[in-house]
Amino acid sequence: MSAAPPSNAERLAALRAEVRAIEATGASAERLCLPFGIDEMDRRLAGGGLPVAALHEVSGERPLLGDDGAALLFLAGIAARRQGEVLWALARRDLFAPALAQAGLAPSRILYAECRSDEEVLAVMEEGLRHGCLGAVIGEVVRADMTATRRLQLAAETSGTTAFLLKRGRKKEADPIDSPSAAVTRWRIGCVPSGALPEVGDEGIGRARWRLTLARQRGGAPFTWIMEASDAEGRLALPAQPRHRPAAVEFGWTSSINGLRYAKA
């Protein structure tokens, strides 16, 4: 005698249990975070670092090659500190492997996916995230709507793989970080003047410096820091304390500009 088919109420109860299990898995995965190892940054991030199973968006602060390059190297440094291979989907051939290596991401760890459009980049990213065995997935696009970012966020939560969306090639008047997105964090990266090399005084150029603006984070407030660029291990650093002169003179910034807070050494 065959068993009776489940009733509508039983189907509904089973479906609700399945949804609760998915939500619990996603919430548990999102709690895993990758700290920057800098207290001034990590204590400002809602989970003490970047959520691992999540989508993060990054853009240059201004539509300039320097800021685009800083945003790219910022992502390379984070991806370098993840275990496993990194899938990098892009629509133009302008990645410079030696620069990525200087930010800690060895070319041998990168799987390049050359695409013809933003839509192809987003599709490749989603497939890479659902694979579940990559250290990180990075995609370069001009635009990505709310539907696309929701799909990437869900795929990242399900697989536990970190996703980064690098927005490039925008028009001067556009700000990609202002558009709707499901990303857990959204960043703007800009270049600022470097300090002098400590061993030669004012005659040399020190490590590159960036202005990191956390424009949005789920469960936390926005903040801005001045940081030294990623080193060969993919790690940022606070600028060294200047000698014999005030920090505001060395950095060219005060501790608070237009309501934004800056990290001090």
Rank of each mutant, 00 (worst) to 15 (best):
T158I: 01
A144E: 07
L90C: 14
L90D: 12
A103Q: 05
F96H: 10
D118N: 05
D175R: 14
S108T: 14
E140G: 11
L95S: 13
K171P: 00
L100D: 00
P176H: 06
L111C: 09
R109N: 04
E126L: 08
E157F: 00
M125K: 07
G139P: 05
A99H: 01
V121M: 13
E120M: 15
S108L: 04
L105V: 01
G139R: 04
C115A: 15
L129F: 14
I138P: 09
H131L: 10
L95Y: 08
A113E: 12
L134S: 04
A106L: 09
A144G: 02
E119C: 05
R143C: 02
D94L: 04
A91S: 15
A99S: 10
C115M: 13
Q102F: 02
D145I: 10
L166C: 08
R109M: 11
A144P: 03
M125R: 05
R151K: 06
M125Y: 14
S117W: 07
L122Y: 09
A156C: 01
P176S: 05
H131A: 15
A148G: 09
A97E: 10
L134K: 03
I138W: 01
L90W: 06
E173G: 00
T149R: 09
G132A: 08
L129N: 11
L90E: 12
I138M: 12
A136V: 00
I138E: 08
E157D: 10
K172G: 01
D145L: 05
K167F: 08
L122E: 10
A106E: 14
Q102Y: 01
R168C: 11
A155L: 07
Y112S: 09
I110Y: 12
K172Y: 02
M146Y: 15
E127A: 15
P98G: 11
L122R: 13
E157W: 03
G135R: 00
H131T: 15
Y112W: 14
K167Q: 15
R143K: 15
R150I: 02
A97Y: 02
L152K: 06
R150C: 09
E119T: 07
R130E: 09
G169V: 02
H131E: 13
T158R: 14
V137P: 13
D94A: 02
L154W: 06
G169M: 04
I110N: 08
L100A: 10
T149A: 05
A113R: 07
G169S: 11
L134T: 10
E114C: 07
E119N: 10
V121K: 04
R143M: 03
R150D: 10
V142N: 10
V124K: 03
V142H: 12
A155V: 08
G128C: 11
